[in-house]
Nucleic acid binder design. Structure first.
Lengths: 185, 185
DNA sequence: ACGGCGAGCGTACGTTCGTACGCTCCCGGC
DNA sequence: GCCGGGAGCGTACGAACGTACGCTCGCCGT
């Protein structure tokens, strides 16, 4: 069997296995032993590579936010004008709300952790900051901020609704929130 | 000591204790024993009153959604015109995003469960349906749907942001999403 | 007065958990 | 060739877990 000396990707496998396990079974059913089993590494590796569950989770979710931001990037780097950008945002919303469920579930788990524990909020701050950077390529800062919140809400509602709303509604919401010249106060 | 025979509120106490525990420590740290300890009931009561953790959680979150819908109701039953309704929605968003954290955390936990397990989605369906009913008192169905998603996103972003956005931004977003006569397609 | 029964609880069992500790074995210095 | 050290793992231990099972005891029918 591959020893750790010959297998430098052991840490990576552990992190991926942790995310997979969380996505499949939820934070409540995560344990060192189960992660180890899924990653195909010995139990002892867990405490060797990570100082505890929290440490492991923070690092794992760090990888995850990188991934999500990359998805944002993929959708938002190409469009050339605000109209195309709105279309791209709609694509993004629909991709994340009806895709593999993995990204959706992991986002939820992270936000849940962050809602209770400030330590995890570092991760969400960074995530929000970076996604806003992408949106600000196409919209002014205030609009970007509102749109970011709307995207989050649309994804969640689409994913949880019995009959998810169609693309037209998504687009209309995006158009409204990005419409220029609404009365400010 | 109060026996179960003399204490018909035992079930209720268990459910409240379960929600409190989840809010404080997260689903991951919930166990029959801990809930029992917090509720001040013997361990045996747990398996007697509920057929398992899932059963208990579903019932507890049922109470929780009732509570949240009541909050929606409290804010949205009084306003008389769309302008006042927008103000009320902004109040709602700010109340839920900077209040006790309890409601926020529990919403998150429920959505996380629902994202993975269809059984819990029944609860979120009902929740969304009822909150939309309240919104439809003031806005047309499509707008209500978009606004509902926006509210969710705004609450979450405000609660997790390093520097939460101010009321003006909340109001602007609400005004934009509820603005009449946006180009449909 | 008394017997039975079922709501409700206490407890013991087998399992699973995180972590501390000691062993292995590779690699670089001599 | 040999030795020392540290990266990395296997394992054993005590705490915590869910649940099955049997007991208690108040109430109702007689």
């Amino acid at each position: 069997m591959a020893t750790g000396h010959a297998d430098p990707q052991r840490r990576e496998r552990i992190l991926t296995a942790a995310l997979d396990l969380i996505a499949d079974e939820g934070i409540a059913r995560v344990s060192h032993r189960r992660i180890a089993a899924r990653a195909g590494v010995p139990l002892g590796s867990m405490t060797y590579h990570f100082s505890g569950m929290d440490d492991l989770l923070r690092e794992a979710f760090g990888r995850f936010t990188d991934h999500i931001v990359a998805v944002f990037d993929a959708y938002l780097s190409t469009p050339a004008d605000p109209g195309q950008a709105a279309e791209a945002v709609a694509d993004l919303v629909h991709a994340l709300s009806e895709g593999s469920r993995r990204d959706l579930v992991l986002s939820q788990e992270l936000c849940t952790l962050a809602a209770r524990r400030p330590a995890y909020r570092e991760l969400t701050h960074e995530w929000m900051r970076r996604s806003r950077v992408h949106l600000e390529k196409h919209f002014d800062p205030d609009t970007a901020r509102q749109l970011d919140a709307l995207i989050e809400g649309l994804i969640l509602h689409r994913a949880l609704a019995r009959e998810p709303h169609g693309r037209a509604l998504t687009l209309e919401a995006i158009a409204r929130i990005t419409a220029p010249g609404t009365r400010a106060r």
